[in-house]
Write a protein that binds this DNA or RNA. Sequence first.
DNA 1: GTAGTCTGGATTTTT
DNA 2: TCCAGACTAC
Length: 964
Amino acid sequence: MSEPTPNENQQRLIESIDGIYRVDAGAGTGKTFAITRRYAHILDTTDATPEDILLVTFTRNAAREMRERIVQHTDYDLRELQGAPISTFHAYCFRLLCRYGHTVPETLGIDDQIPDSIDLIEEPVRERQLFQRFMSTFADDHPEHADMLRIFRDPATLHTLIGELAAKGVIPTRDGWFRSSDEPLHGDREAFFETVADANAPGEGASGPTNSDARGAVSGWDASEYAPDAPSKREVHDDPRVDRGVIERAYDEDRTALLAFVHDVYHEYIACSLRNDYLTQGLMLALAFVMLCDRPQVRDQVAHEYVMVDEFQDTNELQFKIAVLLASTNNICVVGDWKQSIYGFQHTSVENIIAFDDRLGRFTRELNADRTRIDYPVESITTIPLYENYRSAASILEFAEQSLSIPATYSEDVDDPLAGERSLAATNHVDNAQIDAYHASNEHELLLDRIQLVVDSDDYAVEVTDEPQPDPGATAAQQAAAERERLGAPTYGDIAVFTRTRAFAREFLAVADEYGVPVAYDGGVELFDTPEAKLALAWLRIAESNARRGWALVLERAGYASDRTETIVDAEAYPDAMGRFREELAAIDTLGGFLRRVFDRYGHTSATADALVDHLTSLHETSTLTRGEAIQYIEANLAAGTTVEIETSPGDDAVTLQTIHGAKGLEYPIVMLGNLNDRAFPQYGQPPACPITYDDELGLRQTRVYSEAGTHPHVYPHWPTKLLQSIQPPTYDEERRLLYVAMTRAKRHLLFTAGDDPSRFMDGLSIDATTVEPAPEHGTVDRAAATPFETTIPDSSTVPRRLSVHDIMDDSVYDERDGGRGTDFGTAVHDFAEAYALDEPVEPSNDDERAVATLIDDLDGELISEEPALLPLPGEPQLTLAGVIDLVHVTDDAVEIIDYKTDPDRLAHDEYRTQLSVYYHVLASVYPDRPIQATVFYTQTATPITVDPVSLDAIDRLSRGRHE
DNA sequence: GTAGTCTGGATTTTT
DNA sequence: TCCAGACTAC
């Protein structure tokens, strides 16, 4: 498509390059287009080169897109822009710090320098582990902080607080705080008491004044929960208010010990990480800020004539200040939309854009307090609103506006936040929007039902083609006619389902799989917090050490009651089938084979199971994890809540499923917003985290306290913090903004769904929800088809007897068969073979592996590696044989089974014949139309030997004979 | 009508 | 850690 012509305000933004601009760029208003054109305009009309223009974004993807679009608008090519500062905040600052900041730690009283080789930690798991290690040495080194340390259940939670303080620009030096940056730690007393004045104002009841909200929040005040110095209920209650004197006493409590503790932990953590040559992202930005403040010569060298910051609603205070310091003149342009600020939990500050003018003045004054750093004028700020929306139908834009004022609780009062703000204006000419809300007792099925209703329906028409485009200068009526011609019935790919929580998305995906509806999840999953991962962990523990925790979970999953489970675990009297399964698992060499066997037995064919196997088997390129290492790895990631991106693509035409956060910046013809359930969206409260918290009004506070004042030394909840927090009215602005973001992704149609218990947001919509009895049809997508060798999946508690193929082989023969090369050698060859067959970048490291590589190179059909195979036997009682096939080669007219053996001789060949016969019969039932060939491939001599399979009955006899 | 008390259940994740 | 909702008490 050709580049559109900028609208009036876009043009104004493009041409306004001198001075300070705040651009309110609403959803779908062509922000990236305008910014990149502005960049080009600066190059075209001034002497500036790309080096002079700093353009910071938030994600690597956004930075890349900016670069590419700038290339389209200018004479520069991608290569010439390679070194240009078009970058994420983090990447840009890291580069500066590495180049100019070696000695910056001196400013904070730290002797270690920043080496070129410093390691920037990105994985939260590692960050947490390193912090944990630091805290244990800190505790040993600081007996004076012992009482503070007692309030922690897990001192590692402190690292979140340190990240938050860094984001605020609070930075410790050896003896104090950098440039009085500790001010926020003391809180904003005035603002707090203003808030309290509101919250503590009595209500007006039918029969006189009623208790204030604050008084209501402390109605159950019980002094006995707290340390002995806590005020009594009588002292707190001053009906119909909370006693003002008690609030002041709480606010003004002595926080010396708390501040000293946080200072010491924070400062020593910076020192410790530098000593060990690593930095976290947050500390890195803090040091970059220190450098820009403290080294005028560095700033002179790096500051830019033009500074542009995209997604400004997602910046924190520290980044705001860094941006100001990186500007050499007042040619500053920030672009964002406060209504789309949804990353508060990442310590971003929506006030940066809402109160931009105030903050710019205040931050400049702070930065200039001791000497002039900002020498350009900051008083004159121009606001440019972009309000022409190129995405959504008019009725969707109008509908979405209400989201910002729907109360999240019964008692919440929301002012109209859009007062005085210009509404977005649709540029679409045809508004065929369907906006509907539904609820049903089974929301997952409801969503599937609605998806099937929408797909192929002309009532939900969307753009299906770019043609025809009317001539430029066509009348509105002509444009509308052309637009109407571009509309047609939607397909699955036109639909996106958004959810508030990942858990809901995961559940919905499973149901969609069941029904065969094509749904592709896009985003991260807490891979280690899934039922699959917990099951794998349990069996790993059992196989490794017969661990009680493992058995407890396995038995529970098999349906045993918890008291029964305990008895079984105590007596170690595990059910026979489980005991045998343990032995079978213990005999599996590869972690991949182990996990697949577990999932196979339980019938887990989900994308989650696949992702888990892939993730755990591809962690290290050179070596694979042992079972013990796998256990540790899963445990660490479970504790850290690690997420892993998973791929689920059931084809080209599929519904996109993602969390609202994941959908930011994207657009879809049809949006279904699910999960509008009580306590899910909006979300209330927080899980218990760090016992030291920060809040702009309260400053630094501790929620627990160690006291020896009572009869026994004890850790109590800390009454002053408890009181202050409970009288602070909670705010749900960010939840409303999430709702807004979700709605404004929709181009044509918008549907809402909820389960039995709709949330306040669902109730608050200006349309009523229709009750539906969902009846989704079964579709044709069969994700299980990806695992073709699966037979029926027995419930684990009633599982028929199951044997491993190895159980029916005479192991006395091959026990001595490793020829001195060790079982590890065999495992390594198998791992190589699997990776090589999957086209992973592995190189053969010995002759055996080279033989395997040559063999695989010669195969031209489909390759399936490490595939579990199950063979139900004909006799009674029911018995199933299980194994894992090394490689299956499928062509249109034949199927070949290949099993690698690293044996130096053929002594065990008869046993292998039995093993491959089992696989033969499995595949014969899967591919009845094709001849099956079973081959043992002896890797040492590169010799394939085709086996003559034994009959099913013979296998049956053998199995019963060997095992009765 | 108004207040108090008790129970059950719950996250999002760019760098 | 918070909320909603059911319940009781006055």
